[in-house]
Amino acid sequence: MPAARGEGPVEIVQIVGLGLLAGMLISLLRQHKPELAMQLSIAAGVMLFVLMMAKVLRVVEVMQSLATRAALEQAHMDTVLKIIGIAYIADFGAQVLSDAGEKAVATKVEMAGKIIIMLLAVPIILGVLDAILKLLE
């Protein structure tokens, strides 16, 4: 991963440059072929996201080490990470769709993301409830 050795300030130039370039190409294409412009914006979004993914990996590692130190249950930590991932993907999809003018579908995608997150969170909620009940006893 190139990002692993990159420093913060340099990266931001890269990312903004990429974004501007993509923006110019997209606006150029949008006049003639909107359907292709949308695909281009997807590609640009994905590329920006991927550039940032290395950083996210570091953050995740930090969180994991914190969790071990706090002696948190590993299963709970995994669930939290999954929830973050799902939130990212759902948000990405919803953004693209609303960009393309499909607001209705975008809200459905967001909805699906929320429901799945809820489902994933069920064991944690149950754990929390258990803990509270124990305290009350």
Binding site: V46, V60, K82, G85, I89
Partner: peptide, 24 residues
């Protein structure tokens, strides 16, 4: 559109895999 879609779809696939790997 189809040709570009193929490119974008592979890209998206890579992206999803990356996200999945990152968040386990």
């Amino acid at each position: 559109v189809l040709v570009v879609l193929m490119m974008v779809v592979t890209l998206l696939g890579k992206f999803f895999n990356l996200v999945k790997a990152t968040f386990g």
